[in-house]
């Protein structure tokens, strides 16, 4: 097998406590995964699962406390800021809120021209203009949209611009952080379809971060599920949806709203407190909410264990193989 495009190894990030005397927040704990060339990996979890922190570590918005982020073999985690700036076009991010991610005083055309120049500083004016027009068509807008300002665009159109700006520099990989969560379902469907089309035509490699497995199902080739900063399951999307191994993944699946399927009351995690890092103690972080919890779960942290080809899960129910500890997925 060829080397993956991006290798994340035992990534760790802890935030200082918000208030004096509080305990530090372990946002990400020993998360390892690969992003293979040309694939879309869905990174799924609730608020506080650390999924956005991972995305932000990848684009240097946060500096990890430990672990490695290898892009083409180069460790981004320890790269000095200056060196990273030279490589920053390699990883691009699409943000959740397109309104705040665009400069309100810059026209769409200028924002995209800036990105295009960043990619090819020596290109002539006509080349840039030609690329700009091609880019706008690629994301489903018209050349006349170039003269518009963000406030003249709808939410969906703004998100299209956000995508255009990210792909304008032809990055090695894209990170979409809740890129469709703030949009109406109808617009969400448009953007998902657009991302799918772009991925097909440009062969994009993408980390698709979302709390909604229902959306992830449409874009991801593989899915990684996070719970309180730990990876609990990762595998091919088809497997994850057909036979989710971890009880948390099962709960996430059951929560997807589906017009044709009434709410499955038994499968809903009906605990108002939600994820609580303190409740877990030394055991499995999900144990306090888990419908299948056993005594064993409260004592030991489960390891990622192979449950099928290319599919691992960290749950006692899936047997423990201590010798597989730390094995990369």
């Amino acid at each position: 097998m060829t080397r993956p495009l991006l290798e994340v190894r035992r990534l760790r990030k802890t935030f200082a406590p918000r208030r004096r005397g509080g305990s530090p927040v372990r946002a990400v704990t020993d998360v390892s995964f690969d992003l293979r060339e040309g694939e879309v990996l869905g990174l799924v979890g609730e608020s506080g699962s650390g999924k956005s922190t991972i995305g932000q570590c990848l684009v240097h918005l946060h500096r990890p406390d430990g672990g490695e982020i290898l892009l083409d073999g180069e460790n981004l985690a320890t790269l000095p800021r200056g060196a990273f700036r030279r490589r920053r076009t390699a990883v691009q991010m699409i943000f959740q809120d397109p309104s705040s991610a665009l400069n309100p005083r810059m026209s769409v055309g200028d924002a995209l021209r800036e990105a295009l120049r960043l990619h090819s500083p020596h290109a002539g004016r006509d080349v840039i203009e030609e690329r700009l027009e091609r880019l706008l068509r690629l994301i489903g807008l018209q050349p006349e949209h170039a003269s518009r300002y963000p406030h003249q665009l709808s939410g969906g159109q703004k998100q299209r611009i956000g995508i255009a700006r990210a792909i304008a520099v032809e990055p090695r990989c894209l990170i979409a952080d809740e890129a469709v969560s703030a949009l109406d379902v109808s617009i969400q469907a448009q953007i998902i379809t657009l991302l799918g089309d772009l991925q097909q035509s440009l062969g994009l490699t993408m980390l698709f971060i979302s709390h909604d497995l229902g959306v992830v199902r449409y874009v991801a080739d593989r899915v990684a599920v996070l719970y309180l900063g730990r990876l609990v399951e990762i595998g091919p999307a088809r497997d994850i949806f057909a036979a989710p191994a971890h009880p948390y993944t099962q709960a996430l699946l059951a929560a997807i709203p589906d017009p044709a399927r009434p709410l499955d009351e038994s499968a809903i995690l009906d605990d108002p407190a939600g994820p609580d890092p303190r409740a877990a103690g030394g055991g499995c972080a999900f144990a306090p909410r888990c419908p299948h919890v056993m005594d064993l779960c409260r004592k030991d942290q489960p390891f990622l264990t192979q449950v099928a080809a290319d599919h691992t899960c960290a749950c006692v129910l899936r047997k423990i193989h201590p010798d597989r500890q730390g094995e990369t997925v």
Binding site: A189, R217, Y218, D258
Partner: peptide, 16 residues
């Protein structure tokens, strides 16, 4: 536009 699956669990294609 709403994500849906058929009886076998495969997602129905989105038609935005």
């Amino acid at each position: 536009s709403a994500p849906q699956v058929d009886a076998s669990g495969t997602p129905l294609p989105l038609k935005p």
